[in-house]
């Protein structure tokens, strides 16, 4: 029975002491400890979220760089292509023009050759006619000088010709 009967002395001391302990520990131990723990946890949380944010920012930055690089590459490709195209078209144009010029000059040459040829041929024909007339005149003159021979010739023609 004595075991389960609380003694007044211990009740008194326990109440006083425990309340004092509760007060002093609350004020001088638990308050700073809980505060420090909370502060540290907040710090860790903040640091973690900051790291996460930095990571995201880094990713965004990297993506941005990537995009810029891709854009730059595309731009370069485009410029290169443009330049190549321009060069090609320039060369093409020059070539076409040269061709055309050549063709035109060949045509001109051909026409003038034709003309020259015609003129030369006419001259040759004229010359040949004159020469022929001259030769024929000379021939006839000489033939007519020999009367006997003329007669013989006429005779031969006549013989060949059968007057019947």
């Amino acid at each position: 029975m004595q075991l389960v009967t609380p003694g007044i002395g211990l009740l008194f001391w326990q109440t006083i002491t425990f309340l004092v302990v509760l007060f002093l520990l609350s004020k001088f131990a638990w308050k700073p400890i809980m505060k420090a723990l909370r502060e540290r946890e907040d710090n860790i949380d903040a640091a973690l979220s900051m790291a996460e944010k930095a990571k995201l920012e880094m990713q965004a930055l990297k993506a941005d760089n990537e995009r810029l690089l891709t854009e730059a590459r595309a731009e370069r490709d485009r410029i290169l292509k443009d330049a190549t195209d321009a060069a090609t078209s320039l060369v093409e144009g020059a070539r076409a023009k040269a061709n055309e010029e050549g063709q035109r000059m060949i045509e001109q040459a051909r026409v003038s050759i034709q003309n020259e040829k015609k003129a030369a041929l006419t001259e040759v024909k004229n010359l040949a006619a004159t020469l022929s007339i001259d030769i024929a005149e000379k021939l006839i003159r000489r033939e007519l000088q020999d009367e006997q021979a003329q007669r013989a010739l006429v005779q031969s023609y006549l013989q060949d010709t059968h007057l019947s």
């Binding site: 302990v21 001088f28 131990a29």
Partner: peptide, 20 residues
């Protein structure tokens, strides 16, 4: 109680000493 004070006041001191 003495032991509790000794232990937890020293711990509280440690928390303020190496804060964070």
């Amino acid at each position: 109680v003495l032991l509790l004070f000794l232990v937890f006041f020293s711990i509280a001191g440690a928390y303020s000493k190496n804060r964070g």
